[in-house]
């Protein structure tokens, strides 16, 4: 499993996928909760739960990317050789950076629900 990682892009883009799903789910849920019931608190609770779940998932993917990057054992962040090891670690490095961006994105998408307490 660990060895096949140098061929798979999934680990790298897993966190952005979480961000994209969270984005769509938050918009759909808020629209539905507000249009059907006008239930602002329900909408906000849903957004909060989805956001916690998304951040949790991103943290898991970030941890796995960090391990795949394996920075500490080699202390080198240049991975430009055409070898399996460099490819694997490059994907891990990129995956970690994308996880950070995704976490920021998820937080910003959820921020309005934190401040605005009504469906209006």
């Amino acid at each position: 499993m660990e060895k096949a990682r140098h061929t798979s892009l999934w680990q790298m883009i897993a966190a952005p996928i979480v961000w994209a799903v969270h984005f769509c789910a938050v918009y759909a849920w808020t629209a539905s909760a507000c249009a059907h019931a006008g239930a602002a608190e329900e909408a906000r609770l849903g957004v909060a739960l989805m956001t916690l779940a998304a951040l949790g998932l991103i943290a898991v993917f970030a941890w796995r990317a960090w391990r795949q990057w394996d920075l500490l054992s080699e202390n080198d962040h240049v991975h430009d050789a055409p070898t399996d090891g460099h490819r694997r670690r490059f994907l891990g490095h990129a995956g970690l950076l994308l996880s950070m961006v995704s976490a920021i994105g998820v937080s910003f998408v959820a921020a309005p629900a934190f401040y605005i307490g009504s469906c209006l």
Binding site: A111, P112, F114, Y115, I116, G117, S118, L120
Partner: peptide
């Protein structure tokens, strides 16, 4: 965002 709720 903190300035927006008043408008609603």
């Amino acid at each position: 965002l903190s300035e927006m709720p008043r408008q609603r």
